[in-house]
Design a protein around this nucleic acid. Structure first.
Lengths: 188, 188
DNA sequence: ACCTGAACACCGTTCAAGT
DNA sequence: ACCTGAACACCGTTCAAGT
């Protein structure tokens, strides 16, 4: 119920939608509920931001922009890759609903792009490039998203088994990094 | 439009729902559409199968029953674990919509249970048990589901990158199995 | 016990109408 | 250019009523 003193903008619509999704979850993002949040008629939203589909896409775009701010830390390429994977994972855990939205829309790959590019730089330092690097990047990306999905499942479902998600994440991350260093000729 | 010569049963409702989901996807499974498919009033469904939520749960239960028929092949534990992972992956790829349904309902873990148990037996043959085995199982399960999600994404999204999903799957699978054998004391 | 239609409270989206 | 209400075609679910 925020009264618009001036007029509605695409940015205001997006902010309202983000507020609803973060606060009440994905299912709560209906056009009518968003209209109430903005203190506006339902149909006004369509003028500024198209339909519900495009609204969701814009929300995912905002998430992608956030991902561009992640930076690698650490001395060795291995540490820097691990730091990127961990930072990405933590960021995604902070915005579970929007991540679910991206996943629902098959845009997870796009969300990972910025971090993926940063990882590619580190892989190049390890001497890994070309199709081999593409495979490694896929494996790393998917490992992170998998872990995020697991945490969300445990949150909803309750912990039916005594598994520490972060430990499981580090377990496979270590296996992947070992495999990468083996390929690069670094013996553990 | 199948006319019921006798009367409706929970099984008939479930079969109709399965047909719709496999044929037209998840979004097409509405109570009214299902009623048309069965040649019955919408409200009859509620008598036999409860509400839409329970209908989805029953559909996932059928998927889980299917998973119980998967068997390991191969001589070594490593080969048998790999065969289970591959069989599971192929089975899930055959029923993408129901898998999505299970995922939506946070029941992926339950779907994996039968195969997970079979894998646990093989891990025990490798001398891996307890919390370490639990971690390894998680990693293997999540690797499979990740790969299935990737294939579905590529199908919908179009292949924006020249990545062979099966090759990516085998890549990380090898890394995971190497890591397991290292822990078990088998040097590659 | 089983099946029905009517009704309720929701959706997303379109469109003619206002200013 | 921007915002509105009315209307349309959908949802899931309930409930009194039929047999």
């Amino acid at each position: 119920m925020v009264s618009a003193t001036r007029s509605l903008t695409p940015e205001l619509v997006l902010e309202g939608a983000g507020r609803i999704v973060d606060r009440e979850g994905l299912d709560a993002l209906t056009m009518r509920h968003l209209a109430d949040e903005l203190g506006v008629a339902v149909t006004s939203i369509y003028w500024h931001v198209g339909n519900r589909e495009e609204l969701g896409d814009a929300l995912v775009d905002r998430l992608i922009a956030e991902m561009g701010t992640l930076r690698a830390t650490g001395a060795t390429p291995r540490e820097r890759i691990a730091s990127l994977a961990r930072a990405l994972r933590r960021r995604l855990l902070d915005r579970p609903h929007v991540v679910a939205l991206a996943h629902e829309r098959s845009r997870t790959a796009t969300v990972f792009r910025p971090v993926s590019d940063a990882m590619a730089t580190e892989l190049a330092d390890l001497g890994i490039a070309g199709p081999e690097a593409a495979l490694a990047l896929r494996a790393l990306e998917l490992h992170v998203v998998t872990s995020v999905l697991l945490v969300r499942t445990l949150d909803r479902f309750g912990s039916t088994e005594p598994v520490d998600p972060t430990a499981a994440f580090e377990f496979t991350l270590t296996a992947l990094l070992d495999a990468l260093e083996l390929r690069a000729g670094v013996c553990p």
